[in-house]
Write a protein that binds this DNA or RNA. Structure first.
Length: 289
DNA sequence: CACCAGGCTCGGC
DNA sequence: GCCGAGCATGGT
């Protein structure tokens, strides 16, 4: 970190855990850069943020940028502590309720970020049949090859490329991002967004089912990926993408019952807690096995 | 070094 | 409409 940069002290009283957010699987570029400093990137901005004490953080942005950009990005207008209380009450209805309350406790601090639609769309198309480290690698390659560089006090950062920049990518250049068969899907997404066959900005105010239906018009986008984009980019908190982990939880822990639709308005964060906890359980098992 | 990965498309019932 | 094979490549 160089001297003379802008650092702002932030107070956050609600659930907020940088490490869990960065490792939650909803974003693929966030990471701990050095000793407690986490970097997040959105649009043409990067933030470096570090926890100082229970409610205090330092951030590499002005107070105005925090208020105008990052508060919204981290969804700090929402009370996640209250949502977890809602989950604890909801869990009492089920014999397997302990599984739900445990997930809400272990996942405490995760937030549903408000990410950019185009980046989220491309990222989750790339995500299919890949491990999270492999997804991160592909997304980084896309940014390195086609994204603009911005300067920060923590060094230069590549931002996610614009639609225009990616539309100029050759098939060979795209395949060099370790996309495999998904290259054709990414290409189709770029084209349909560029040609405004799919209008990502208009979907911001569209009903849920229209978001899902329009996104599924893109090759390689099915029910799960469309739901991820709807939740992580359009903040449709009532939607819960069902991937292999969530399906496993439904089968193994919830007696085959999809409890997310029943939970309603905040099913998306419940899904995130369960995804995080289920994956964590698998990691511990691997270490102790 | 097999194995499987935040799924989806396509063809066959 | 449901079901299963096939998909390219990398991380473990």
């Amino acid at each position: 970190m160089e001297s003379g940069e802008v650092l702002t002290v932030i107070k956050i009283r609600d659930d907020f855990d940088l490490a869990k957010i960065a490792d939650s699987g909803q974003c693929f570029r966030a990471a701990e850069i050095q000793d407690g400093w986490f970097r997040f990137i959105t649009s043409r901005q990067a933030i470096h943020i570090k926890k100082i004490d229970a409610e205090t953080f330092q951030a590499s942005c002005s107070a105005q940028e925090w208020e105008g950009i990052w508060k919204n990005y981290f969804d700090l207008g929402e009370n996640y502590s209250a949502i977890r209380e809602e989950i604890f009450r909801f869990s009492e209805k089920f014999s397997f309720g302990e599984k739900l309350s445990e997930a809400a406790e272990v996942g405490k601090g995760i937030r549903i970020l408000r990410q950019e639609p185009f980046e989220t769309l491309i990222s989750f198309i790339v995500s299919q049949r890949k491990t999270i480290p492999a997804i991160r690698k592909s997304i980084e390659l896309i940014c390195e090859k086609f994204g603009e560089t911005i300067r920060t006090d923590f060094g230069d950062v590549k931002i996610f490329p614009t639609v225009a920049a990616l539309s100029k990518a050759t098939t060979l250049e795209l395949s060099a991002c370790a996309l495999g068969y998904r290259g054709a899907y990414v290409r189709d997404a770029i084209e349909k967004v560029q040609e405004r066959i799919v209008r990502l900005d208009d979907l911001q105010v569209a009903p849920d089912d229209q978001i899902i239906a329009e996104l599924k018009f893109i090759k390689g986008v099915g029910e799960k990926i469309a739901n991820c984009v709807a939740l992580y980019a359009y903040h449709r908190m009532n939607l819960a993408p069902v991937d292999v982990w969530i399906q496993r939880a439904i089968d193994e822990d919830f007696g085959g019952r999809n409890i997310f639709a029943e939970f309603g308005a905040n099913a998306g964060i419940l899904q995130q807690y369960i995804f995080f906890n289920k994956r964590l359980g698998e990691k511990i098992f691997e270490l102790t096995d």
